[in-house]
């Protein structure tokens, strides 16, 4: 059996995590984190093909999380980071410019569309 790509999904809504996992579990190996902090912890142990994060989260926003990822794990190849949700243009632009963000998608996402984006990032 072909090894599935590993995806880390970070969102502060448990329902979102569950739904994401359920939608993509057939295609990818899904790891989820309820916050940026938890995401960073997981990243310490596991390497991922693609990281997807929600923007608006208490404590650490998606962009802040991406910044942390960028500084702590510089070896992560570009085009592997995706941001979702609702964010201010300035924040997104900052992430694009500085933290290797490759795609921004707005919620609610659509399975086919998001899958295509993820596949695109991996290849």
């Amino acid at each position: 059996m072909k090894k599935k790509p590993k995806i880390l999904y970070v969102d502060d809504e448990e329902s979102n995590l569950r739904i994401f996992k359920d939608a993509f579990r057939r295609d990818f190996e899904i790891y989820t984190a309820i916050s940026g902090y938890q995401g960073l912890e997981i990243l310490e142990k596991t390497a991922f093909d693609v990281i997807i994060t929600d923007q608006r989260m208490p404590g650490m926003t998606g962009v802040e999380f991406l910044k942390e990822v960028y500084t702590r794990f510089p070896e992560i190849p570009p085009d592997r980071l995706i941001l979702s949700g609702y964010a201010k243009d300035e924040d997104i632009n900052e992430a694009f410019k500085k933290y290797k963000l490759s795609k921004f998608i707005s919620k609610p996402w659509e399975y086919g569309e998001l899958k295509a984006i993820i596949m695109n990032a991996i290849n």
Partner: peptide, 25 residues
């Protein structure tokens, strides 16, 4: 409103898709 409705709508929207696929499974 946009943000507040964003998440719950996402549950419904993405959830229905998952449900559909689970049912297929």
């Amino acid at each position: 409103i946009a943000h507040e409705i964003n998440n719950p709508i996402n549950f419904v929207y993405a959830g229905i898709n998952s449900l559909f696929r689970d049912f297929e499974d």
